[in-house]
Amino acid sequence: MYAIEVENLTKIYGKGDTAVTAIADASLQVKPGELVAILGPSGSGKTTLLTAIGLINEPTRGKVVIDGVTVADEGWLAGLDLKRLRREKLGFIFQAHNLIPFLTAMENVMIALEINHQTRSEAKDRATELLSALNLGHRLNNYPMSLSGGEAQRVAIARALANKPKVILADEPTAALDTENGKNVMVLLKKLAVGNHSAVLVVTHDHRMVEGFDRIFNVRDGRIVS
């Protein structure tokens, strides 16, 4: 079973003469444990594809299946709790780490767990475990402002992994990092994909990082070209 299945996904913004097709007839499948890149220049439609898979942006047409659950088939399926699906099945990593500035590193991870109905002590134990595994055991009580870019991104990765998601979606996770930190993040993502048996889909235009991926989908003008 694929962790991500996308068939003929199309997203059109606007209507009539002003309609803009951001992504057209995109199809892809990602298996658990795979680290896959969607590569393309700015405006090519890669983030639109990510947001459709991430249950943020409703596709105009096409089908999206996440961990065996069909979430979109010519639009969102009726009766779906998208927030619950996002909490339980997806983990997000952002370009600018998007840590909550008024929470410590540990609390940033705990919040994802508490939102998913974990008790405080369970959340604390899991956050400590994750951050320690990412070599951040000494930074548990630090606020994001006092973390380096690499450290902050590792906290963001810990948060994305907190609820053991089957799919991790990363939006330009290395864009704000230098080459060395960027490579470290890629190694970490690969390790997590294999170790947690999660599908990791990374949207990037950072050609420095292409070496670490299992597969790469190139997107041009809203279409997957290779």
């Binding site: 991430g54 943020i56 927030k83 619950r84 699906l85 996002r86 909490r87 339980e88 997806l90 997000f92 952002f94 998007n98 909550i100 500035p101 008024f102 919040i111 994802a112 939102i115 998913n116 948060r159």
Partner: peptide
């Protein structure tokens, strides 16, 4: 922050 919370399913 709010957008991030919503994205992670808050």
């Amino acid at each position: 922050v709010i957008a991030t919370l919503k994205l992670i399913g808050a």
